[in-house]
């Protein structure tokens, strides 16, 4: 059952992912991104990480995507103009590289499935309590450093968006 669900949602995530890149209308592309995030959240749940699944939905689908949609609406709803045709050599090279990557990942995925490495420490426990314990002990420094990163970003956004210098 879980395997069937995994393949169903993984495939759906891929379809939505392709749509994000392929659709020319920014609004539809953003909505496809919601689809990708929803599918990923299901995958997290299937992996036994219900907290991450919920955070994925709340933060990405909820907050970030709404922000992106706001920006799209503010900037006006125009379809992306079609990019000028690429040179046939460029197209060929791109295709070759893509196929190469695809082959690599397919082969790689095979090895990955056969040689699964157990995670050190913690095991499969990933409830809210366990995450909280980790964040405030072993990962306290990165956690606090992220707050400085966010502050720097906020200060910078303010600096760049100010109406007047002085």
């Amino acid at each position: 059952m879980a395997t069937a669900l995994f393949f169903a949602f993984a495939a759906l995530a891929l379809v939505f992912g392709i749509l994000v890149a392929a659709l020319r209308h920014p609004l539809y592309a953003a909505l496809s991104l919601v689809g990708v995030i929803g599918c990923l959240s299901v995958l997290f749940y299937l992996l036994g990480a219900p907290f991450l699944a919920m955070v994925q939905l709340i933060v990405y689908a909820g907050a970030t995507l709404v922000l992106i949609l706001f920006v799209i609406m503010l900037l006006g709803l125009r379809s992306e103009p079609r990019a000028p045709e690429a040179h046939p050599v460029q197209k060929g090279l791109g295709l070759l590289l893509c196929l190469n990557m695809l082959l690599f990942f397919l082969l790689g995925a095979g090895t990955l499935v056969r040689k699964t490495v157990p995670m050190t420490g913690g095991g499969a426990r990933s409830g809210v309590e366990d995450l909280g314990r980790l964040l405030f002990s072993r990962y306290l420094l990165p956690f606090e450093a992220v707050s400085l990163l966010l502050l720097a970003a906020a200060v910078g956004a303010f600096l760049l968006a100010r109406r007047e210098w002085k």
Partner: peptide, 25 residues
């Protein structure tokens, strides 16, 4: 040598760099 910390440091540095270049807006 912890990759998570290295990444947070890298991002902190990068965000600062982007912003400092953009200050002469």
């Amino acid at each position: 040598r912890h990759l998570l910390l290295i990444f947070v440091g890298l991002e902190l540095l990068s965000v600062v760099l982007y912003l400092l270049v953009a200050t002469y807006r």
